[in-house]
Nucleic acid binder design. Structure first.
Lengths: 235, 235
DNA sequence: CACTGTGATGACACCAGTGTGACGAGTAAC
DNA sequence: GTTACTCGTCACACTGGTGTCATCACAGTG
């Protein structure tokens, strides 16, 4: 999923620079130079990270920070404060108020992006690679949650491991033997046909409604996770 | 609970300064100047935060950082890198390697402490003094009070620690082993099933009336604090 | 066309994993 | 001492996940 950033900065030139940087990193960007507006925007749609200038119109950045932290839904959103005030006292005040990081101007855009990345790695492990996705399918290994197009799906333990194995190697064909080794464990003595049954259970769980089948059957070879599914119209 | 810090610094004078600062803030401190040793210490008992100098004996700090991040149990421990190398490239390299913050020498001890506090606020919210909340649940670590939708709830000591551990990492699935380590202490020899019983006690305490169950059972994996609860009607 | 092998489907019995209630031991307050 | 409270363990009940089988559907082959 595309990460989103809210930039609160009233210096137009700097705002544009930031916007350009985040955009080219694939962020969806919203920007304002106004403190009040920032609070509204943040509440309206929760960003993944907030870049907050110390000196902005209407309210001071630190006050915005405090207000944001009061909102229960915003407490988990990382805030990076941006300022030309290099005083130690200010930095400490910013951090104590609830900011997660504090960068002084002038700053290196690349370092800023690296710091934002570090923040995101913490708050959204899914962006750090803990969540596996494929064509509308999401599997979060830390929360053990599976979704198809945003809708939660319930899976049994074996189907969960099976799907995870597929998501770790998408599009690739796995023989029944390989699947037994990887999902059941090589010490298990289970019939090969058992794989078929679990593939089916996984299919009915995943393909709710009229969603296209994401599991492709490769005759006399095995199965693969693929957008084509069991579609045969490719001829 | 007393927060713990692992200081990896080979400059004796600086190490002592850091140690003094953390001690006076109530941290339990372990310190080493050796990279290999650092890895051993970290694994032996997981610290709440790691202060890591770039230039240390045996291995470079950045290599230690990379190794730490490879250990699954250390992935959630925040790392603050400390260095005299002010080069932008170095800072970015440090952050990309998995460090959460990067402070250049000379630094202000007070700012360092503020940054550590900010990191802890994220990874161990209860240490930051903040009240933990999740979907109508409140837990105040200072007053040891727990409320559901404003109504006070009485918990035993173990249930309290259990709930706190859940609130520190909401939505995430915790295995019984992990819960025993974190809530009971790894030295304890307690039956795994004991966790079940305490989960149940926590459930009946939390879900007063017809409130939805906030604890999700993940079969053959563990438990998680989640809004879905044990609801299976999500067909 | 019929034949054959492979995969899909539905049913079913089994049992691992979990929920539940009760009990005895330990502990602190009084 | 008593009382109140919490904790760890056990036995039992039960849900639902799991493996197997019989049968059907279908593609490939000659």
């Amino acid at each position: 999923m595309q990460p989103s950033v809210l930039i609160v900065e009233d210096d137009a030139a700097l705002a544009e620079l930031l916007e350009w940087n985040f955009s080219s990193e694939g962020f969806s960007v919203r920007q304002t130079g106004d403190g009040e507006q920032a609070l509204i925007l943040a509440r309206e749609e929760l960003p993944d990270v907030i870049i907050l200038d110390w000196m902005i119109d209407n309210i001071s950045g630190i006050e915005v920070c405090r207000q944001l932290r009061r909102l229960p839904e915003c407490q988990s959103v990382p805030i990076l404060m941006l300022t030309s005030r290099g005083e130690e006292e200010d930095r400490i005040r910013g951090l104590k108020t609830g900011a997660d990081d504090y960068v002084t101007k002038p700053f290196s855009p690349r370092e800023l992006m690296a710091r934002v990345e570090a923040l995101l790695r913490r708050s959204r492990p899914s962006l750090g690679g803990a969540a596996l996705t494929f064509s509308g399918l999401e599997l979060d290994t830390t929360t053990h949650q599976v979704k198809r197009d945003g809708k939660p799906i319930h899976l049994g333990p074996t189907e969960f491991r099976l799907l995870r194995h597929f998501l770790e190697r998408p599009k690739r064909v796995h023989s029944r033997d390989q699947l037994l080794d990887a999902v059941w464990g090589m010490d298990k003595s289970v019939d090969l046909r058992t794989v078929d049954v679990h593939i089916r259970r996984l299919r009915v769980a995943i393909n709710v409604g009229d969603k296209p089948d994401l599991i492709r059957t490769v005759r006399s070879a095995g199965y693969a996770l693929d957008t084509a599914g069991s579609d045969l119209a490719a001829s």
